Simulated scan of single mutants.
Amino acid sequence: MRQNPSFVMTDVGEIRRLIECNPWVTLVSHTESGLVASHYAVLLDDAREDLTIVGHVGKPDDMIHGLGRGELLVVVQGPHGYISPGWYGDGPAVPTWNFVSAHLSGVPELLDTAENLRVLERLVDRFEQPMPHPRGMWAPPNDADFVERLERGTTGFRLTPTRVVGKRKLSQNRPGETVDHIVEMLRAEGPHANPALADEMARARAARSGS
C-alpha cells in the first residue's frame, strides 16, 4: 500500500473492527508456481485479543497455497470509493480514492479436526444469527456424517500475523469542513454515492475532533 505516514493505522482495536466488519478477505501466497490468490471469510480468534485470525480453505487450495509451509498474506478491505475533485471546492484538485485496508502476514498454523469444526461452526453462526430462523451447521437436515464430510473437504488455519500494515485514507489531510462536505456528497444520490464510506469518514472525523 502507499507508504504515506499520515494514513497509517496502527490501533489494534481499529484493525480488529475492520476485520470483524469485513470478514471476506483475499489470501495471497508466493509459491514455486508463482503468486496464488483465493478469497475466503475469516474470523478473529475468540481466544485472543490481538490480530490472530482463523479460517479455512477448501481443498485443494491448501496444497495450491502450500498452506502452513510459507508466508501467507491476508488482505482485508474495508469501505472504499471514488472522491471527486469537485468535492474539494474551487481550488486545484485531482480525483482520488478513499479506503480502509489492512495487510496481515505470517506463516499460518494448520488446525486439527476438532478445531476446524469449531471454526466452521462459528463461521456459520456468525452469518446465520441475524436470520429470522438461524440454521446452524449441525441443525437438521444436516447430520454428523454430513458435517464431518464437509470438514474433511476443508483445511482450517490460524494466523498470528508477524507483520501488519494498516492504512486509513479518509481525507484526513483535508480541512474538517471539506471532509464534512465529502461525507455529505457520498450520502447524496449520485453516481458515486457510498453511504458505507461516508459513515467511515464521519466516524474518523468525529474521533479526530474528539466529539
Rank of each mutant, 00 (worst) to 15 (best):
P95F: 08
V54E: 14
I83V: 15
L186R: 13
L67S: 10
R208C: 01
V94D: 06
E14H: 05
R158L: 05
G91K: 15
E49F: 00
I83T: 15
G78M: 06
M63F: 04
L150H: 11
F146H: 15
V42S: 01
T96Y: 07
F127H: 14
H56T: 06
D112S: 01
V183D: 08
F127Y: 14
A198M: 11
L159S: 09
L67Y: 06
S6R: 05
D180H: 12
V183A: 14
P191Q: 10
E49M: 03
H30K: 02
G153K: 06
S211H: 08
G190F: 12
Q172A: 12
A196D: 13
P141C: 04
L159R: 10
P195T: 10
D90Y: 13
R208W: 07
V12F: 01
A37P: 01
T160F: 08
N142Y: 14
F127A: 04
R174I: 03
S171G: 03
G210F: 07
E32L: 11
Y88P: 07
L110W: 01
L120S: 12
L43S: 01
P132L: 05
Y40I: 11
E189L: 11
Q172P: 02
R2M: 08
R16W: 02
Y82C: 13
Y40K: 00
R122A: 07
V107Q: 07
F7W: 04
N116R: 14
T178R: 05
W138R: 15
P5K: 00
R205Y: 03
T10W: 01
L117H: 08
D180I: 04
H56K: 05
A206F: 02
G190I: 12
P175A: 12
V183S: 09
V25Y: 06
A196N: 11
R208Q: 10
I53P: 03
G89C: 07
E32I: 09
Y88Q: 10
V57R: 08
T10A: 09
H30V: 03
G156H: 04
V164A: 02
D45F: 06
P132D: 11
R135L: 11
G153Q: 05
E71I: 10
S211Y: 00
G66W: 05
M131C: 03
E121L: 04
L73M: 10
H80W: 11
M63P: 00
L150E: 08
P195F: 07
E14V: 02
V76D: 03
M63L: 11
V57S: 01
V119N: 02
L120Y: 04
S33A: 14
M137P: 03
A188M: 11
E109K: 14
F127I: 02
T96S: 15
R163D: 10
G153I: 01
L110H: 07
W97L: 09
G210K: 11
P161M: 03
F127T: 09
L111A: 06
A207S: 08
M137W: 08
W97I: 10
P161E: 05
N4S: 01
T26K: 06
Q3Y: 03
T10P: 00
V100C: 11
V25I: 15
G166S: 07
R48N: 02
M63E: 14
D143M: 04
